[in-house]
Simulated scan of single mutants.
Amino acid sequence: MNAWMTWAVLAGVVVILELFSGTFYLLMIAIGMVAGGIVAIIGFGSSVQLIIAAIVGSLATIFLHKSKYGWKGNVNAARDPNVNMDIGQTVDVQNWHQQSNGHFSARVAYRGAMWDVELHHRDGDAGQYVIHEIQGSKLIVKPM
């Protein structure tokens, strides 16, 4: 088997493995292997093929990591609407109670249950509020 065929088979195997992993990082390594195969078709030796495959695969992985599709830092699940479907929903607060620390709290009916609601550093007026964060059984809200 020719060297370029070996690179193509290896790249295909890595693409199949990537389908199971759910990330794009193995795909970037496969792109490096394809680059190694192209260098093999041109006629360079195996050491040049390996170096080109490593460089292209590494650069592709770095560019993916820096892009918007790359690794996301630790996201606070209490504020992430992709984790918690309640983030961004509205609640109707009838009256606020001022606490000693300057915060406002209330009790509201939301999704068939009573919830504690907290509003920070604002004057608490009755009305509708948007859920900004969830801390245990407490909704942290902000004005609409």
Rank of each mutant, 00 (worst) to 15 (best):
Gly127Ile: 00
His120Pro: 10
Tyr129Val: 07
Asp92Ser: 06
Gly12Glu: 12
Ser58Asn: 13
His103Cys: 06
Val14Gly: 14
Gly73Tyr: 00
Ala8Ser: 14
Val108Ser: 05
Ala8Glu: 14
Pro143Tyr: 05
Ile41Trp: 08
Leu59Thr: 11
Ile41Phe: 02
Ala35Leu: 02
Ile55Gln: 08
Pro81Glu: 07
Asp125Pro: 07
Leu19Val: 01
Asp125Val: 05
Ala30Met: 03
Phe20Lys: 10
Ile52Val: 09
Ala40His: 00
Trp4Lys: 09
Ala3Trp: 11
Gln98Trp: 06
Ala78Asn: 10
Glu133Leu: 02
Gly22His: 00
Ala53Leu: 01
Arg122Glu: 15
Ala77Cys: 12
Phe44Lys: 12
Pro143Leu: 01
Gly57Met: 05
His121Tyr: 12
Gly12Cys: 14
Ser46Lys: 09
Ile134Cys: 13
Gln135Thr: 07
Ala60Phe: 01
Trp7Ile: 00
Tyr25Leu: 08
Met5Tyr: 14
Trp115Ala: 13
Arg79Thr: 15
Ala35Lys: 01
Arg122Lys: 13
Ala126Tyr: 01
Met144Cys: 06
Ile131Ser: 10
Leu19Lys: 03
Ala126Thr: 07
Ile140Leu: 07
Phe20Pro: 01
Tyr110Asn: 14
Glu118Ala: 15
Tyr69Gln: 14
Asp80Glu: 05
Leu64Pro: 10
His132Gly: 01
Asn95Pro: 07
Arg107Gly: 08
Lys142Pro: 02
Ala3Leu: 11
Asp86Ser: 08
Ile41Pro: 13
Ala53Ser: 10
Phe104Ile: 00
Asn2Lys: 04
Asn101Ser: 13
Asn101Lys: 14
Phe20Trp: 03
Met114Glu: 14
Trp7Asn: 04
Phe63Cys: 08
His103Lys: 11
Lys66Gly: 09
Gln128Tyr: 04
Gln99Glu: 15
Val83Arg: 10
Ile131Arg: 07
Val13Lys: 11
Val141Pro: 03
Lys142Tyr: 04
Ile140Glu: 06
Leu50Arg: 06
Gly22Pro: 06
Glu18Asn: 02
Asp123Lys: 07
Asn2His: 07
Tyr110Gln: 06
Val48Pro: 01
Met33Asp: 12
Lys68Thr: 15
Gln89Leu: 02
Leu27Pro: 06
Val15Glu: 12
His97Lys: 15
Leu64His: 04
Lys138His: 14
Ala40Lys: 05
His121Trp: 09
Ser67Cys: 03
Ala3Gln: 05
His121Arg: 10
Gly37Ala: 04
